[in-house]
């Protein structure tokens, strides 16, 4: 799990072009949206693409995204549970 978390941090930084942010700046339990990383609605859609592209996981209902993308840890948990 911790390995996946570290990998995800790097992937999120790359996919969302968070150039000035380093993996160690991201607390895996902190909310990804709202304050903090300054992510917006396009980033949320971009995370859906990340899951599909890197993990083959398709999110059919964007509304599910809220829970899945709450934090890096929630993402990692979802990937572990759903990876084919």
């Amino acid at each position: 799990m911790e390995e996946l978390i570290e990998k995800l941090k790097k992937e999120v930084i790359e996919q969302l072009n968070l150039e000035d942010i380093k993996p160690e700046d991201i607390n895996p339990d902190s909310p990804l949206f709202g304050e903090g990383l300054g992510l917006d609605s396009i980033d949320a859609l971009e995370l859906i693409v990340l899951l599909e592209k890197n993990y083959g996981i398709k999110i059919e209902d964007p509304k599910d995204g809220k829970k899945i993308f709450f934090s890096i840890r929630s993402m990692a948990e979802y990937i572990t549970a759903n990876k084919k």
């Binding site: 971009e46 693409v49 592209k53």
Partner: peptide, 9 residues
């Protein structure tokens, strides 16, 4: 095939 919303916009 992975169109990206942040590119498309």
């Amino acid at each position: 095939y992975f169109p990206s919303p942040s590119v498309f916009v």
